[in-house]
Simulated scan of single mutants.
Amino acid sequence: MVPAALSLVADIGGTNTRVALAHGAEVQVDSVRRYRNAEFDGIGSVIARYLGDSSQNHTFITGVCVAMAGPVHDGVGTLTNLDWRIDKAVLAEALSAERVAVLNDLQAQGHAIGHIAATDLAEVLPQPEVAATAAKLVIGLGTGFNACPVFDTAAGRFVPPSEAGHVSLPTSIAELHPMLSKLSDSRGYPSVEEVLSGRGVSQLHAALHGEVIDPADILSRIGDGEAQACDTGALFVKVLGDVAGNLVLSHLPFGGVFLVGGVTRAFAPYLDQFGFVEAFRSKGRFSTFMEQFGVSVVSDDYAALTGCASHLSRG
Score class of each variant (00 low, 15 high):
1 M>F: 13
5 A>H: 12
6 L>M: 14
6 L>W: 14
7 S>K: 06
8 L>M: 11
8 L>G: 01
8 L>H: 10
11 D>K: 11
13 G>F: 09
19 V>L: 08
20 A>L: 06
26 E>W: 10
29 V>L: 15
39 E>H: 14
43 I>C: 09
43 I>F: 02
44 G>E: 14
47 I>C: 06
47 I>G: 02
48 A>R: 13
49 R>I: 10
52 G>W: 07
53 D>N: 08
55 S>P: 00
56 Q>A: 15
62 T>K: 13
62 T>L: 07
70 G>M: 04
71 P>F: 11
72 V>S: 03
81 N>P: 02
83 D>N: 13
84 W>F: 11
85 R>E: 11
89 A>N: 13
90 V>W: 14
91 L>E: 01
92 A>M: 08
97 A>G: 01
100 V>N: 04
105 D>Q: 05
115 H>C: 11
116 I>H: 07
126 P>N: 02
127 Q>H: 12
127 Q>N: 05
131 A>E: 13
131 A>R: 14
133 T>V: 11
137 L>K: 02
146 N>I: 10
153 T>L: 14
153 T>Y: 00
153 T>W: 00
157 R>C: 10
159 V>Y: 04
163 E>D: 11
163 E>W: 13
165 G>V: 08
166 H>V: 07
169 L>T: 03
170 P>I: 10
180 L>A: 03
181 S>C: 08
181 S>L: 09
185 D>C: 12
188 G>I: 05
188 G>P: 04
189 Y>S: 11
192 V>T: 15
196 L>D: 00
200 G>C: 03
202 S>C: 07
207 A>R: 05
217 D>L: 15
226 E>I: 12
227 A>D: 12
228 Q>I: 00
233 G>L: 04
234 A>P: 06
243 V>R: 01
248 V>Q: 03
253 P>R: 07
259 L>Y: 10
263 V>R: 03
266 A>F: 02
271 L>W: 07
273 Q>V: 14
278 E>F: 00
281 R>N: 06
288 T>L: 13
290 M>L: 13
290 M>H: 07
293 F>A: 02
303 A>K: 01
308 C>S: 07
315 G>F: 05
